[in-house]
Amino acid sequence: MAQSLNTTVSFQTTGVSYLGIGGKVGKFLVGNRALEFYADANVEDFIQIPWESINQIGANVSGKKVSRHFEIFTDKGKFLFASKDSGKILKIARETIGNDKVVKLPTLIQQVGRFFKPKKNKKQD
Rank of each mutant, 00 (worst) to 15 (best):
R94F: 09
A39I: 04
A2E: 15
N60R: 11
A39W: 05
N55S: 06
L105M: 12
S4C: 11
S67W: 02
K104Y: 03
K120D: 00
S4H: 15
S53I: 15
R68W: 02
K88S: 09
F115K: 08
V103G: 08
K117F: 00
D125Q: 00
F37I: 04
I109N: 05
L29V: 00
K123F: 01
I21K: 06
N42L: 14
Y38D: 10
G63R: 01
A34N: 07
F11S: 04
G22V: 00
N55Y: 02
A93M: 14
E36Q: 11
G26L: 07
F73I: 03
M1Q: 07
F37P: 02
L90K: 03
A59D: 03
H69F: 04
E36P: 01
I109F: 11
S67E: 10
I49Y: 13
D125A: 02
L29Q: 07
A39P: 01
Q124Y: 01
V9E: 06
Y38L: 13
S86Y: 05
I89F: 08
F70T: 05
G26Q: 08
K122T: 03
N99R: 15
P50H: 12
I57A: 14
R94E: 15
D40K: 13
D45C: 08
K120N: 00
G87Q: 12
F46E: 07
D125R: 00
V30C: 11
I57R: 02
I109G: 04
